[in-house]
Write a protein that binds this DNA or RNA. Structure first.
Lengths: 232, 232
DNA sequence: AGCCCACTGTGGACAGACCACACCACGTAC
DNA sequence: GTACGTGGTGTGGTCTGTCCACAGTGGGCT
């Protein structure tokens, strides 16, 4: 086993054992190297992997916040992995789209089936209102769109699904932007998307799970089709 | 932007542009470092990340096969990310289980709906036969079980789903093993699992999508419940 | 009392070196 | 002529040492 893998395994043990919890800091690179009897570059390689996976965040400087802090951003690692494989041509974009439809439609269905305070939908309604403004730029619209969809997915209550969706969205973000710029009439498309969004949020609000799932599926498939990203 | 991130971006560009395809080799670390005007450790950190994501495989020595070879193992990166986040306590195992049920049941449904040569099921039937042997060890049984489930998922035709399922299985492998050893009577459980497996494969063979999905869902949920891994 | 600045601990980056390894081609022995 | 052994060569793996940039912190100066 290579040195950085040993380091990684040790850190993973610590994470599993609760030695370090989110928000806390790993020992300094030099300290970790000495403690494990390895060189600093080896420790750095392990930390790089943890960083790429969204397990830690590193920062230079001194005081709290500096060093390698344990965070919980599952979406970062999953997103990077998906993005790289899409880039290398291993994963077809169409598979990403199909998977997104499946996961998100189910997440929205779960959301509608759960009981929650109606106030939980307020942030989403804020987004809806902002996106409905005429003359909203494409980039801002897509950013809000992402927040809205992730917010809906979060209501589903499955953190892994939320992370995968977030990662997939990031992985195909450039394709989505390109596709959105290529639609025939963006204002018309935007208006339609807004109306569909409202329909989904309403269905969730009245806990109509089947309808929420159906609308979500149609919404996502429709957009990707219009943007020329789906074979289906 | 940090140096290793620049290197990573450059390599990602090359992957997207088709400069390197799966099976081909990246330039040597020293050559890459000189070409990009950075130090070798920076290149190494970038390659480490690619390796952790399942994009490349590194090997020492000389000749073909040595160096950093581009591979396509999306499951590796996704699996590592999921495993690490489960270890750090960010992702509940129950979410992993729920996601697996959703993805795999749908993959099997897709498999049943597709048309394929019945011979494609032969490898799965081989696994079924092997697992039915009395006295089959738990570890070997679980390994075959994984192959069987992945084979079914592969028939669904969505590579991302297949990768996610493979990764999740790897991420919770230790939990599954522990759970399997804890069941009341392993031979009885194994026999039941075998029967359920046959039912699923049969349903796929006769293209009964709804039944295949239902059986898969019940099979996975039942096992995790028996192994004490599911709250549901 | 308030401000400034040096100190200190942190990650970021680099240069250089040595090792282990695996292939490959050359040369030798049969 | 063939088979075997052996050194050459290119590769990643690892370590050591060094310097830099950065950010907080505390003491000293104004």
């Amino acid at each position: 086993m290579r040195t950085h893998e040993r380091v990684l395994a040790r850190i993973e043990e610590g994470l599993a054992a609760g030695t370090w919890s989110p928000g806390e800091r790993l020992p300094a690179e030099r300290a970790l190297a000495e403690e494990l009897g390895v060189s600093r570059p080896s420790v750095r390689e392990a930390i790089r992997i943890l960083e790429a996976m969204g397990i830690v965040r590193t920062a230079v400087g001194s005081g709290p916040g500096a060093g390698a802090t344990v965070i919980d951003r599952p979406a970062a690692g999953l997103g990077a992995a998906v993005r790289l494989h899409v880039a290398s041509g291993t994963l077809p974009v169409s598979d990403v789209v199909r998977t997104r439809v499946l996961l998100e439609a189910n997440a929205v269905r779960d959301a509608a089936e759960r009981s929650f305070d109606d106030a939980a939908l307020d942030p989403l309604r804020e987004l809806l209102k902002a996106m409905a403004e005429p003359g909203f730029g494409i980039d801002e619209f897509l950013a809000h769109d992402q927040d809205l969809h992730l917010g809906l997915a979060r209501l589903g209550g499955n953190q892994l699904v939320e992370a995968i969706l977030s990662g997939m969205r990031a992985a195909v973000a450039s394709y989505v932007t390109t596709g959105a710029r290529a639609v025939e009439s963006w204002p018309r498309t935007a208006a339609r998307l807004c109306a569909e969004h409202e329909g989904i949020v309403d269905a969730v609000a009245r806990h109509d799970a089947a309808e929420a799932e159906r609308l979500t599926r149609a919404h996502i498939e429709g957009f990707y089709r219009e943007a020329g990203l789906a074979q289906a």
